[in-house]
Design a protein around this nucleic acid. Structure first.
Lengths: 248, 248
DNA sequence: CGGGTATTTGACGACTGTCAACGCCAGTGG
DNA sequence: CCACTGGCGTTGACAGTCGTCAAATACCCG
């Protein structure tokens, strides 16, 4: 899994964009956030942002692109923990200075904003609202991880994939990055397989089933949900809880 | 899964024991912690502490007993997210006032300390060290959950069960609750199956293999690790990382 | 001792993995 | 322009892990 890579580009003086992720927060916090930012990084596709075992004190906000967070076993098998989408935080562990417990690799070219960990700690002491926000994010991430666990442990291949596709679609939609029922879809079937705990071959067969059942259309780097209700039911995806779950 | 239950007993004036969980913290924080505690609860075996979907503002510290945290699917299948052991926190989400995302059920009779959520929030604002501690706990829980995910997604039945048994043994040992290479082991094979994402029948077969291979001896509510190194290797359990991972 | 729960086993089937090959497509270089 | 190449998607045949069904045995507690 995962092949060639190229070096990043660091550009400390990139224009600063809006931090949708810290919403809702007040202006004071937004200002703080922008001051704490030290640099933006542009990462080419396939490049690792960091790897399991490395020691680093940087946390990130993903501005643009898709990044996978994964862990791997000595035998080479890998499990994707999460697909990070624009607006997501990476390595947000203000008090953890041990080695990274997972790897982060860009799927597409990606732009991240770098936060020195020390400033995050500083923030916890001086900005209680951001502290609450961080806790909220941790709580949501934990819930999402547990939902993922439930899926891999107790759902069939079909259900897991249907759920994942719905999840990615809804998350993109909440970010305003859906074009009707279609989203850009830069990941490969191997990524999907690594996320749901199946092999590429079997993943391919299930994808075909979903296509044959007129639930999705997945080709040319884009995913179209042809039957949202059907796909949601198949994957046990609670459409009524989208807002609260993936609220940015 | 999960059968008969009995009501809890609330005893607000139980003697207060030491809060090992908040270590290392200074005395001021320990005092605060003890003041914030509102009551202790004794929960009979099989009783639920709370259920998925319920709304509540209580968080807990488990003093004694084993509690399972799980989620279930409409079809009745359940996935255990975590075995809570003495000293663990439950429902530690200071900023989350929505419905619970998982259920908590006592395996053995258990004693918990109850914290009103409002006091937790208060604490975040006034005790930065405890805030850091909470973040540390979240980080550790997240890492553990991801490790669990990796196991269920990418390990064989044998590896998953070996890993789980090692994990439970080491966690008990760190709590000083191991008698040499033996621990009290109140869970059933159904619990193990629900934790590793297998059926009871298949779990039983794997347990037999482990026994036949002289790796463990599991009977009469106790688990003995006969070959620690062998079991760890089989489950890809990093013996050298026990301390940092499950540090209380 | 009796009833309910937990553990075990066997037989069988299905879901998922493995191995291997082929097609498709885009980028590359002659 | 076209062959060439590597990455990805797709299929078929087959094996094996794991699930299902069913039943017997063992265990615990009143």
């Amino acid at each position: 899994m995962r092949k060639r890579e190229e070096p990043h580009t660091r550009c400390s003086e990139c224009p600063i964009r809006e931090m949708a992720l810290f919403e809702p927060v007040d202006q004071e916090q937004l200002d703080w956030t922008q001051r704490a930012r030290s640099a933006q990084l542009v990462i080419p596709a396939r490049r690792h942002l960091y790897r399991e075992g490395e020691v680093s004190n940087e946390a990130y906000t993903l501005f643009d692109g898709w990044v996978i967070l994964y862990r791997s076993l000595p035998n080479g098998k890998a499990q994707i923990m999460r697909f990070a989408l624009p607006g997501d935080f990476l390595a947000l562990h203000p008090d953890h200075d041990g080695p990274r417990t997972h790897s982060a690799q860009a799927v597409t070219q990606s732009t991240v904003c770098v936060f020195p960990r020390g400033e995050l700690v500083e923030m916890l002491h001086t900005h209680p609202k951001i502290t609450m926000r961080l806790n909220w994010i941790h709580t949501r991430d934990m819930t999402t991880c547990q939902e993922h666990l439930l899926g891999i442990g107790r759902k069939s291949a079909e259900e897991r994939i249907a759920f994942l596709l719905m999840e990615l679609f809804q998350r993109m939609r909440l970010r305003g990055k859906a074009d009707g029922n279609r989203i850009a879809f830069p990941i490969t079937q191997e990524h999907i397989a690594d996320a749901v705990g199946l092999t590429v071959v079997h993943t391919n067969r299930i994808m075909r089933q979903l296509r044959d059942a007129q639930l999705i259309d997945c080709s040319r780097q884009s995913l179209t949900i042809l039957n949202e209700k059907g796909l949601a039911e198949l994957g046990n995806f609670r459409l009524d809880m989208v807002e609260m779950r993936h609220l940015i």
